[in-house]
Design a protein around this nucleic acid. Structure first.
Lengths: 159, 159
DNA sequence: CTGTATCCTTAAAGATACTG
DNA sequence: CAGTATCTTTAAGGATACAG
């Protein structure tokens, strides 16, 4: 987008995640990688995205170390790195939200483990395993907090 | 973006989620709503986004029922709906990924519960509580699967 | 304070032709 | 097959002025 603010500069891990992934296409490519697609043409067919766009996204995902090129240079396979595989909770959480709120309870795709057992609904929990909700979650400055972040968090209305 | 494909038409809950949220700005607005911001000007200051853009995003989030306008029409407060609050796992998963992979282990913000207990790292689990990884997750057609989706899933290389 | 209305700029998406 | 190189289009984003 024109004059787009560099999200990665915001002192916020969420913004950094958004900046690293790039855009929706990138996320859908990652999803396809989880599905087992590895070839340029496979992504292209699956997503129907223009080749130049796909090329650029694959490049940026490779630069971000989310995907790695394997095999020959002329016909590489794109495979998830550890960093890429670590995105599974993000994709599953997004998919489950879509299943619940955007698919009228009729999900197009079911997620299971290798034995066909269903995936549990993801929930936020504290270190004792208790569920944390929007009402009980809190945000505190961390070790990487900038002065601005500290000030901002202090200015928040205490919930 | 120009000529942007309508992601919401892809028979995929992830794409529908992306379509509903709209873009990165929308997700950051939702994050701010979790932080407790409710006013137009608060979002504006926090994100530094142009007023017309913010206005459009708030509108589309309200249309998507993720935010609700409360109070007066002239000076509404924007608050998360149940649908919006249900996005917490998505935001936390994204934040945790950023903390781990984009913040060199020095997260700017720590997530806790109301008592200050840390949030656990989110993981994908099956219905027996066992962790499911990129290697063991599977995708099967669901009740809402289109013929295309079924064909596509069948064509995948069995992992 | 909370927007709406313009105008402008620019980058992102698509189409397409071409190359190794 | 896997891209690269152009070209065009168009809509998203920013700035700013104005309104209720």
């Amino acid at each position: 987008m024109p004059g787009k603010t560099d999200l990665s500069k915001l002192n916020c891990s969420l913004a950094r995640t958004l900046g690293a992934v790039g855009d929706w296409w990138a996320l859908l490519i990652v999803r396809d990688a989880f599905l087992g697609l590895t070839r340029f043409s496979e992504f292209q067919r699956s997503l129907g995205v223009a080749r130049n766009i796909l090329s650029a996204r694959l490049d940026s995902l490779a630069k971000a170390k989310i995907l790695a090129r394997e095999g020959t240079t002329t016909r590489p396979r794109y495979v998830l790195t550890e960093k890429g595989r670590a995105m599974l909770p993000v994709l599953v959480a997004m998919t489950q939200w879509g299943d619940t709120w955007q698919s009228k309870g009729r999900p197009p795709v079911l997620l299971t483990d290798a034995s066909g057992r269903p995936i549990e609904l993801m929930q936020v929990r504290n270190d004792a395993g208790l569920i944390v909700t929007a009402g009980t979650i809190r945000f505190r400055p961390g070790p990487g907090a900038s002065p601005d972040t500290r000030k901002f968090l202090k200015s928040l209305p205490d919930k």
